[in-house]
Write a protein that binds this DNA or RNA. Structure first.
Lengths: 251, 251
DNA sequence: CCAATAGTGTCTTTGAGACAATATACA
DNA sequence: TGTATATTGTCTCAAAGACACTATTGG
């Protein structure tokens, strides 16, 4: 394969973002309303073109900042920002009717933040519960009904991101990425309950997470923001892999 | 973003293949010797350009067939071929000195086959033990020494593929992808031992895999190809996720 | 007082890990 | 016979799940 610019077909490369957070009792995704054709007026995942001299992850972090004001934790910002990881790449030749576009999707996990939108080129931004965007049991285009399907193949991308988040909080400490810097065991438990859509025993959960080495570090403070008896505050510990893992209840 | 072909920067998109198999007592990867500059004469992962009307996975399956003669199991071939799944996408602006190339890597798991090379445009193809290509503990550019570094960032891609295989056989039935259609419990155990680089207790392993529902289906036949008492032959069961998972010994 | 949440303790069951013992081939 | 591998069984310990009970706030 000698170097000949005309020898390779030209592709456009974009990044799309699956930005998830836990709001109230729902797992929510960030969606933007499209102002242009195709899919004008439909909701879509935030994203945009990768620049010619830009790394893929840098493009994802830039789009995230432009459309939400969130800053990803990267090499320059090891702990301050939200979690960002590559999800998968989507390149069906007909996924964009205009041209051949390969999109590298990234998954972002963020704590519940006061205002989702932070300006940019998106006319409208909102947090939408994921089960209003992808019907349950419809992960890969099944039988469920989608009330308001996302543009392009973004429904599929979102479903893949949600599935990644659901499985990854099992064996990693990633659930803390949905929490503020200091949080209680009850708040962490609510993250698991909302993401998995199950109820967990508060007593067993407490024993489990406080007994897993490196998962939680007590800060010494307490809070009563959940009501009831004051709860200890924790920060995320250094551990990234949980051993033993959290077990998702079956069926 | 209106449609304007000059508005987006042109990228080349390729697929690279991490093809793994278990040969003897080593986990091996398929590598091809480069006949062209850059990295002429160096070993590299098989791969090539994605065609303008070709799906990414189709491009990966095509390159796999062209360079190895292996057929992936896809929509048209649900059970006959080898396992193929998307691994990750690599798009550092300087990963190819000639031009901006985004490469979508795919992971292929194959049983030990008689002849690795099946013709094509690769001058030289071989199975190489992965620990001769990526030094242990050197998964992401650490302190180990690489005897013969792969071209481009293929060492990194291979390390990511090996790590994916190592973690995925824990909680899925994917280890059977390294086995022939009919295999014994001892052969399956050797897959785990080679991929993880550990020794497993044959008795506990036998009890575990035969007790996991849907993992193994006895065919009724037996074989003595491993020596010793004849062993039952099994096929892979329908289960894809193992519950409970296989546990990788720690430390 | 009651309601709500936090946190501890206790019991049962499941399963992993260690390892003895038996089964059945080949040399 | 000995050696190699397969397969079953048994014991112990760790951890998950169910759930009683206590602790500490606010109304």
């Amino acid at each position: 394969m000698p170097y000949d610019p005309s020898a390779f077909p030209p592709f456009a490369v974009t990044v799309d973002l699956v930005v998830l957070t836990v709001r109230g009792h729902a797992l929510c995704a960030l969606v933007v309303r499209r102002g242009e054709s195709p899919y004008r007026g439909r909701w879509a995942l935030p994203g945009g073109f990768v620049r010619i001299d830009e790394d893929l992850e840098a493009a994802a972090a830039r789009e995230l900042a432009e459309e939400t004001g969130l800053h990803a934790q990267g090499s320059d910002e090891p702990h301050g920002g939200v979690h960002l990881e590559q999800l998968a790449t989507y390149g069906d030749p007909r996924r964009d009717p205009r041209m051949r576009v390969v999109s590298v999707a990234y998954l972002v996990l963020a704590p519940d933040l006061p205002t989702p939108t932070a300006g940019g080129d998106a006319h409208s931004v909102r947090w939408a519960p994921v089960d209003t965007l992808v019907a349950a049991g419809d992960e890969h285009g099944g039988e469920g009904k989608r009330p308001d399907p996302l543009a392009f193949d973004h429904g599929r991308i979102l479903a893949d991101g949600v599935e990644r988040a659901r499985s990854k909080i099992e064996y990693s400490s990633l659930a803390t990425a949905f929490c503020p810097p200091e949080f209680t065991v009850g708040e962490l438990r609510r993250v698991y309950e909302v993401v998995w859509g199950v109820a967990l025993d508060p007593r067993n959960f407490h024993r489990k997470v406080t007994g897993t080495p490196g998962f939680l570090v007590p800060t010494g403070g307490t809070t009563t923001r959940q009501g009831g008896r004051p709860a200890q505050l924790f920060r995320a510990g250094g551990a990234t892999l949980l051993n033993p893992p959290m077990l998702r209840p079956e069926i």
